[in-house]
Design a binder for these strands. Structure first.
Lengths: 205, 205
DNA sequence: TGGAATCAGTGACTATTGTCACAACTACAA
DNA sequence: TTGTAGTTGTGACAATAGTCACTGATTCCA
């Protein structure tokens, strides 16, 4: 509950109180699917602890769009809810997480009543948009080896460990490529001393 | 001026009046650069007539992000202005255009005073975000020939003509690839009867 | 203690895209 | 007319990535 207070601290006290009254928190175990493509959105999540992965999928291939870290929200939910459109993306808990759920009808009301809250959403839109831009630039301008290494380093930073428990298949799927390709690249990166592969984890150097 | 009224018609009368008082319009001839990467943003443009192209650039390579059509705004400007950050993208007028310029300091005020206007910006954010998602999916999942054809068809729809005056080099640059590749692909698409190349334009069939 | 499943490694091959070098053709201005 | 710049066509080649077919490991239950 202290976490929540801290996260909302930039908002006005009246709004904070309303949010606390109208919202609920939910514990989400690792690997739970939170949102799937085509689903209608009824709540807007704000992550309090843990890590949520948002990705796009097309014919078995996936592409990681972004992670939602604590204090962040899923702007795709917000967007989808505004227009009452189904979601275009998937969301899965990467770690055991706790999320604060804001009911969309209340949020719509709050945006009128407490213009402050708009800044919060604008910030999030910005953040995500910038991340997508970065992703696009990577896709277009970087070779796969750079993308793989970047992905692992990012993930290492996010999870706060240098020892990543992740399979080649999963890396491949998050980057939208094939498993064998990842195997090859990881061996190359290992030879170049960027990382070290152990039996059941990858160590970032 | 009638165009402006129509575009703003969803907003409250008081807001419309303020906008008309505080904003200016500008005529932008085709090919004028409107915004470059790293530049600070002082006005938020809303396109009244014409067509603006927004793209990202990296070491000579470009990638088309989206077109701003009449009634639409450049949300990247808005984003940049909110955080007082420099722009991450470029914008160029594709056709002779007229744009309505909202001063950023006024806009900040309006978002507090007239919560209505937030919907307008949220809509735009949404639109752009979806477009970026589409772009990413194309990049990741489609081959270049599909992308080239899609690009030309999109452009044909936007400009309202089946006869596109555009060089191979420009197509290549908008898709982030090389000129020779576009030449090859256009020949293939021509053989497949998707289009026809004439001496100084491309006809979409 | 056997499968069964998942994971990782590898060679061979193909497909796609990017790069280079060069030729040929406008179009337009000096 | 003659440059000069911009455009397009093309063949050859290289680099990158994706696919296929298998082989061994490892894990994990039941």
């Amino acid at each position: 509950m202290n976490d929540i207070k801290r996260i909302l601290s930039k908002l006005s006290p009246a709004l904070i109180q309303e949010i606390e009254e109208e919202s609920s928190t939910m514990d989400v175990p690792s690997n739970t699917e939170i949102l799937r493509e085509g689903q209608y959105v009824k709540v807007i999540p704000i992550v309090i602890t843990g890590l949520i992965k948002v990705f796009s999928r097309y014919e078995e291939k996936e592409l990681l769009l972004y992670y939602i870290k604590p204090e962040e929200s899923c702007i795709m939910s917000f967007a989808a809810s505004l227009n009452n459109e189904p979601s275009k993306v998937f969301a899965v808990a990467e770690e055991d997480s706790t999320v604060l759920l804001l009911p969309v009808d209340k949020v719509a009301k709050w945006t009128k009543q407490f213009p402050d809250i708009n800044n919060l959403f604008y910030q999030q839109y910005n953040l995500r948009y910038s991340e997508l831009l970065t992703t696009i630039n990577h896709l277009l301008f970087n070779k796969l080896d750079v993308r793989v290494l970047g992905f692992l380093q990012e993930r290492s930073k996010l999870t706060g460990t240098k020892e990543l428990k992740i399979s080649h298949r999963q890396i491949a799927s998050e980057l939208g490529t094939a498993r064998e390709v990842v195997s090859r690249i990881l061996k190359k990166l290992e030879a170049e001393n960027h990382l070290k592969q152990h039996s059941n984890y990858i160590e970032i150097l």
